[in-house]
Design a protein around this nucleic acid. Structure first.
Lengths: 241, 241
DNA sequence: GTCTGTCATATTGTCGACAATCGACAATAT
DNA sequence: ATATTGTCGATTGTCGACAATATGACAGAC
């Protein structure tokens, strides 16, 4: 059996993603929500969305349901669906659970860290710093999540990764609201140095307390912001671009 | 403003669940899957299910999608949806994540344990023992999950509770497969005594190691079972009752 | 003046039918 | 005989229309 095109060795020949309409709709909608194009609390009408995307209401509804399960939307039967708006308590929950999961993720991967892991972590950190220096808030948020996401991916723990995806979405949702209401937000340039150092080091206990501190700092910023801004974002109307 | 019925102080006055067809379908299907009425790996055809439930394919598809998100079903576009069948690695993931989450849950609730908590925990444990003595495997599984579930409920941590729900479903799915293939399974009568004692005690570190041991015992039974049985459950056909 | 009952309208929930795609079998060429 | 290709039935994906429900405004009674 000689080499043929079916072997997939040729560049660019691989499984191409079979896209259903539902997936593409969910993708676009999620991107729009996480980018802050739709304000938390604003209501989404199915007919309007189906007209905008030029699709039927069937796959649109399935996409909405999926985003509901991801925690990005809330829906009350026969009434409507709204973009979820997080309370300060919700944010506290996100960070507390994230602390636990991230420590667990490092526990899983600690003895399996290899050169590839270290190199990739440093690479993502460089990307993060670059986006921060460029002043690109949106990209720096994604870059920060990519840095933290590596440890979840490296462990090969599918369930853990799934949980991280859920937290990821909610975090972006909050940051989008923060950015929208508070102007520029970007993570500070050096806020991750100690985190990276601990992640590459050999002291697991030190890393654990570093993660805990890292999250505490995050939730402190959050609480200060939310207390100042009140809950003004609830019920505010928004529109997609 | 004096007290009126609108205040909701009266017993039994609260938001009553408005049921959509989708929710009821998801409920029934989930129950059927978790009870083991549909074997893991068996395929579900939408038309057959819609005919059986006497509903259209619209709400049925939404229910299926919801169960996919819960990890009970897997679906490949244009091909079909199957009841998820867990590999030994999946079960290991479930127990490892559950260990972490349950310890976290106790961390959250530890200083807030009151008499109600203790009484409820003992009550659920008595129910568990009663169902075990009665030889009712299905009920004893639910009772065991209820015992462990209390700490997740008591913390008031919505995100944590959501994660527990997800684990709960997958656990029941595995146990249903176990029960189906292995005959009676029930938890041993005294396997929870030390757990309950530690949960009611004052030594958090002891509880942590107790939880770890408890889960390790669970995963050991699992691995032994799955190694003996092979992966014979994959692809096996089943039918609803 | 406040409350209650009614109605109009907009939005969601549900249904049945059509189109796109997949998996398997048969036909065919080498 | 084997590998490739064309075809067919079955199943899923998508659509447009209809029914059920919630929300708000308005008229009428106490």
């Amino acid at each position: 059996m000689d080499a043929s095109i079916a072997d997939g060795r040729a560049a660019g020949i691989g499984r191409l993603a079979k896209s259903t309409l539902r997936e593409r709709i969910a993708e676009r909608l999620r991107a729009a929500i996480l980018a802050g194009d739709i304000a938390p609390g604003s209501s989404l009408t199915e007919t309007a969305l189906s007209a905008r995307f030029d699709v039927s209401r069937g796959p649109l509804r399935e996409a909405l349901r999926q985003l509901v399960d991801e925690g990005l939307l809330v829906t009350v039967p026969y009434t409507g669906t709204h973009v979820a708006s997080l309370s300060v308590e919700d944010v506290r929950e996100i960070f507390s659970l994230r602390t636990t999961l991230e420590i667990f993720a490092f526990d899983q991967v600690w003895d399996r860290r290899d050169d590839d892991f270290r190199a990739e972590l440093l690479r993502r950190n460089r990307v993060l710093i670059a986006t921060i220096d460029a002043g690109d808030d949106r990209a720096s948020i994604s870059a920060e999540l990519a840095v933290h996401g590596l440890v979840y991916e490296a462990g090969g723990h599918k369930l853990l990764q799934h949980a991280w995806q859920g937290l990821c979405g909610r975090l972006q949702l909050y940051w989008a609201a923060h950015h929208r209401a508070h102007g520029r937000r970007g993570p500070r340039r050096d806020s991750h140095d100690s985190y990276i150092a601990a992640a590459l080091g050999d002291d697991l206990a030190a890393l654990r307390s570093e993660i805990t501190d890292h999250m505490r700092r995050g939730v402190e910023v959050t609480e200060r912001f939310l207390r100042d801004a009140g809950l003004a974002n609830v019920g505010k109307k928004g529109d997609m671009t």
